[in-house]
């Protein structure tokens, strides 16, 4: 479904993604882990069409996509960011924020779809006429997910979607993402620095360091410590070390 081959991204003289390749079958979820600056977000931004200064090959559903994307692409592929506050227009009501993708793609039944989208992410209907600053961080991230889903995409690109949230809210959002994937047969790529979060949602994981994806392994192998690259082992042992509650 998603095929990335030898993806390279540079900013000026600085190559920050250095030939990354991976595949994600339809309905599957792929996780990308790595420390800050390793190039995770840059990979997602190239995939989502937010950055078009890349080389290599990207195909979705067997169809090669170029640096410039058409409207049909944006209906199929949507992105959710770490900071829902920064990604939601502060002066627009939730109603307006959710209507926009429908208007852009010429999708009808706006009323019914907004009601359904809010229900689907478990937000009360009253939220509809509020502004982002009147919601909690968790509610804002639910709005961002509702907006990403409202035009019925096939692929969600998730960049640290729970990193800014309290752990109790993180649990709710991760459960929501798992349920939506099941109901809608969605394909996910999830970027996070948190290995437990990634392994929870993604059966396969890629590990990045310095712009390279140095290892791809199953979540089970990551859990079990069957790693090949020393950086994977290092990240794993830090994560495991903190997990053990005394």
């Amino acid at each position: 479904m998603i095929d990335v081959d030898q993806l390279r991204v540079r900013f000026g003289d600085n190559e920050v993604v250095k030939g990354v390749s991976f595949q994600v079958p339809a309905g599957d979820s792929f996780g990308i882990v790595g420390e800050s600056g390793s190039g995770k977000s840059t990979v997602l931004r190239a995939l989502s069409g937010l950055n078009n200064a890349w080389t290599g090959h990207i195909a979705i559903n067997g169809e090669a996509v170029g640096p410039r994307r058409d409207r049909a692409f944006f209906r199929k592929v949507q992105m959710v960011f770490q900071d829902p506050y920064g990604s939601l227009h502060p002066r627009q009501t939730i109603d307006r924020i959710l209507s926009e993708p429908l208007l852009v793609h010429g999708i009808g039944e706006i009323e019914r779809r907004i009601e359904r989208a809010l229900a689907e992410v478990a937000l009360p209907a009253a939220v509809r006429f509020r502004y982002p600053h009147q919601l909690s961080g968790g509610q804002r991230q639910r709005v961002a997910i509702a907006r990403a889903l409202i035009a019925e995409p096939e692929v969600l690109l998730l960049d640290e979607p729970t990193s800014a949230l309290d752990v109790s809210v993180q649990a709710e959002i991760l459960n929501l993402l798992a349920d939506l994937r099941e109901q809608r047969k969605l394909t996910y790529i999830l970027v996070s620095h948190n290995l437990a979060v990634v392994a929870h949602l993604c059966p396969r994981v890629g590990v990045m360091i310095g712009g390279q994806m140095v290892e791809q392994l199953s979540a089970d192998d990551l859990r079990g410590g069957h790693t090949r690259h020393p950086h994977t082992a290092e990240l794993r042992s830090l994560s495991v070390g903190l997990e053990e509650v005394p």
Binding site: L174, N175, N194, A196, A199, S239, E243
Partner: peptide, 15 residues
């Protein structure tokens, strides 16, 4: 409610 690397949980308990 924390996801765990060593002890996978099919679904996360919420608060």
């Amino acid at each position: 409610c924390l996801p765990s690397l060593i002890h996978p949980k099919p679904r996360l308990p919420v608060l």
